[in-house]
Write a protein that binds this DNA or RNA. Structure first.
Ligand SMILES: [Zn+2]
Ligand SMILES: [Zn+2]
Ligand SMILES: [Zn+2]
Ligand SMILES: [Zn+2]
Lengths: 130, 130
DNA sequence: CTCGAAATGAGAATCGTTGTCAAAAAGGCG
DNA sequence: CGCCTTTTTGACAACGATTCTCATTTCGAG
């Protein structure tokens, strides 16, 4: 399954750069609005297409909020998970080999193959604590 | 945090019973369609309200598909996670104290409090394997 | 039974996301 | 640089899931 390369454009670069300057998970709508504010107008459909391409390319992580909205973030490429402050949105990347091993073992025990998983941790960060 | 009790009705019972007869995660739209087929007409908005109430009451689990659709399932009440076949939807409840401990520890190390997490495992079950 | 509160349902409204398609831009080539 | 083919873009429509509205129905305490 070779991922078809994409022809580079100003719009894709703008989306990628904005996402790298944002440190938190950001929705497509927000990316679109920020680009518009910055004068770098990019069509909404194009923002969606750029984000999807980056997700498929593995340069961006995507997850769903509880409300079902997709949010995106430029991430390091190795497998990891996120610790997200539910007050301010601050995000920390975390890894845990033990968890990886556990999910694979549990799945194998039940006869499942081709296993993937999602794991997100939510809490209140030190700055936002009461 | 006292959960306000809900006045019992035929419609809520119908939703609850249908969900218990379904063994897999089911969308609100599907619940609505099945009830209609069965002659037990229930309004779509009411299906949504019943499902939300059950989620808040803790008698039903909800998770989001990759497409962002909310799917519901009657579940045992203790904390657990799901191993879901991405081909046929078969679902197994799993638990892992080690994972619970790990998420809490990681969060604490980063100064986060009031911690929760989501963890879902996806794979291909034995019956659906090639 | 009577009355006020809560739940329902039909449809409209909202919102994120995807599809459409003509116009614009990229890249290879002479 | 121009020419041509292919890809990308963007304004807007279409879509599907969910929520809102509000008149009507149902609940259940008294
Ligand atoms: Zn915070
Ligand atoms: Zn992992
Ligand atoms: Zn299966
Ligand atoms: Zn857990």
């Amino acid at each position: 399954m070779t991922t078809t390369p994409r022809r580079p454009t100003r719009q894709q670069a703008a989306v990628a750069e904005l996402l790298e300057r944002c440190n938190d998970f950001t929705s497509a709508q927000t990316v679109h609005a920020r680009l518009r504010e910055a004068g770098e107008g990019v069509g909404l459909a194009t923002v969606y297409r750029a984000l999807q391409a980056m997700v498929e390319a593995g340069t961006v992580d995507v997850l769903r909020t509880d409300e079902g909205e997709a949010v995106y973030r430029a991430c390091s490429t190795h497998h990891h998970h996120h610790l997200v402050c539910r007050a301010c949105g601050r995000t920390v990347e975390v890894e845990g080999p033990a968890v990886e091993a556990w999910t694979d073992r549990i799945a194998a025990e039940h006869g499942f193959s081709d296993v993937t998983h999602t794991l997100e941790i939510f809490g209140t960060c030190g700055d936002c604590a009461p």
